[in-house]
Design a protein around this nucleic acid. Structure first.
Lengths: 339, 339
DNA sequence: GAAAGCTACTAAAACGTTTTCGGTATTATT
DNA sequence: AATAATACCGAAAACGTTTTAGTAGCTTTC
């Protein structure tokens, strides 16, 4: 087993000082050309690579960024992550991922763990637990220490930091408007409880589109699930009870379940009932018929988040200006809607 | 902005030495109880947390593990990752993820970057590019430096290290056996080129099951795609050309595409043609009909990989014994097969 | 009353870098 | 020949810890 070689080894072996070796490897003008050659040749021969940890300690910069997301087995988050990773890697940064599993406690623990020198900045989406608890002290502590933070998708007004979100309200508005143009009257909304910032925004867009088109808001057409997991019976009851000709769902899973259910009841999609779902993921693409979807452009969102973070990390001056980038959603039309 | 406090700050503030502070915080017997109380109170007040980087440098242990996977927007890899992250986190380790994007070069670059002190060990699945090139020198270098390595799913015989895979051959064997029991005669295999270790194994299981049941192997029933992306026309040609009553696919995407195609040609699933796909992901679950799938138990695989790695990382002695854990696949029956 | 034994602390090295500040030859300038 | 300039190199500090090896001052012991 050949252990990693250090500057000290090279110095001892070549009979020079550590500083000489360090400078020689950086091609410093201070070092004579023959010494430089000798050192560089030796270093190449033994495949010397500087120790990242030592450099991090010296520079107080790790070149790591911490990403905390609620779930990794989730198409949208992985696309965001891909964007982050791609941009960060191109800039020479590594990405440490922690999964909060939608839990407040795990979010706090992971943040505190990483905040003690392991990373130069955070990119994160709030866990369900955190949004429910409405407690953001762990974020506040981190920002007060001067560690840059970028929130994406699931954000909060309570923390001053850079943010990147999509215009969820507009996404819902556009979807509902499309339904109405297609002549739909009884448009349902399948969503989660309101503590998710995104669900609130989408519900607002839904209401506004109805109102702008002179359709009365009808509480009976709103189906709320308390969490991400769904109860088949609740869906069935809902569709047995309410006559619905269009459905906007805040995620794919709810939409797909509903589509299968109404199909099993003999309804035709999109003739009898149309569907649009948020998050243009695999399921939307491969459902039959394909699910018209509000694309959230996760990868782009990730790139922007990484760009904003690295910008802050590398800027010397600590400005107190924070911006929120709002990305425009796109409606991807498929077979679940008319045309 | 309150900067992180260090031992030195505490020492200076309290008029004691750094070593005293360090020991006091560890409740060492060497330190008088009044001094300990004083130090601990001060540390708690200012929320002192030791700097991870400094500890890493001292201990030559980072408590980070590096995970390199070909793709992150991929259900199977994310389930494995979830298993890794869960186990590692419980053991106090963080996970640094790099995505090779199926490229040999990026796999090499990422490994070299992380190998210089950033991590205590690697968990990885080989990229397509690496398997195609059949060049594993980057892995060899890492293991020769004594950095533990665990390969999962996409492995190679050429590297001596711990591995965890599922019994792909058996998974295919079981699937084909089920087809045959259901009376299927013309069983197709949709796969990728042979340089993927998993594809080879699955093809072997396919052949063996046919042979064990007295069905001749027919090259015409094998459809090979050069990469993960598919060409609709090729699929269409294939099903126009060959009369097929069952299809085993090495992944979900190929299976779903094929199912939609044969459905559009008016065939009934599973009456006219049955489907089984590898990797029991979201698509299998939500396809209509549901796709019978060979479950690969990704999360469990990830946990085992992390367990094996951390075991090696924390063991003092450097044994040269490497084991390969082989997980048993499970057939998840859904509507795409009879019963 | 000197040796031994405690108690409670500190100095310093070590991990592997980078960088500042000097220092010593050697060469150039007057 | 004395001084200045230059080329080349090394010592040491610093990043924040942990740990070994002391050490000072006190009490105990016979």
């Amino acid at each position: 087993m050949k252990k990693k070689i250090t500057l000290k080894h090279i110095a001892r072996e070549l009979g020079v000082s550590i500083s000489t070796v360090s400078k020689a490897l950086k091609n410093s003008e201070e070092i004579g050309s023959d010494t430089k050659e000798k050192v560089q040749a030796f270093a190449k021969l033994y495949n010397y690579k500087p120790n990242n940890i030592a450099i991090s300690l010296k520079n107080k910069r790790t070149k790591n960024i911490g990403v905390i997301i609620p779930d990794i087995v989730h198409h949208f988050f992985t696309t965001v992550f891909r964007g982050i990773e791609k941009y960060a890697n191109a800039k020479g940064y590594n990405v440490i991922v922690c999964v909060s599993d939608e839990s407040f406690d795990r979010e706090v623990i992971n943040m505190e763990l990483l905040a003690n020198g392991s990373i130069d900045g955070f990119i994160m989406a709030l866990s369900a637990g955190t949004q429910l608890k409405n407690d953001y002290n762990h974020l506040k502590e981190v920002t007060e220490q001067g560690i840059p933070l970028v929130l994406f998708d699931r954000v909060t007004e309570d923390i001053k930091c850079d943010k990147v979100i999509i215009n969820d309200k507009k996404g819902a508005y556009n979807a509902v408007t499309k339904f109405i143009k297609d002549g739909r009257k009884r448009i349902a909304l399948i969503t989660t409880e309101d503590y998710f910032s995104v669900s609130r925004e989408r519900a607002a867009g839904y209401r506004e589109a109805l109102s702008d088109n002179g359709i009365a808001y009808n509480e009976d057409l709103i189906l709320k699930f308390p969490s991400m997991t769904i109860d088949e019976n609740v869906i069935e009851d809902f569709f047995n009870r309410e006559k619905v000709d269009a459905v906007l769902s805040v995620n794919e899973i709810f939409a797909i379940h509903s589509m299968r259910l109404v199909q099993s009841k003999g309804l035709k999609i999109p003739e009898d009932i149309s569907f649009i779902g948020f998050t243009d993921g695999l399921l939307s693409k491969y459902a039959s018929p394909g699910l018209t979807a509000v694309a959230q452009h996760g990868e782009h969102m990730g790139e922007i988040a990484a760009e904003m973070l690295i910008e802050k990390v590398e800027s010397e001056l600590e400005e107190e200006t924070y911006i929120t980038r709002v990305l425009e959603p796109t409606l991807i039309e498929r077979g679940s809607t008319i045309n």
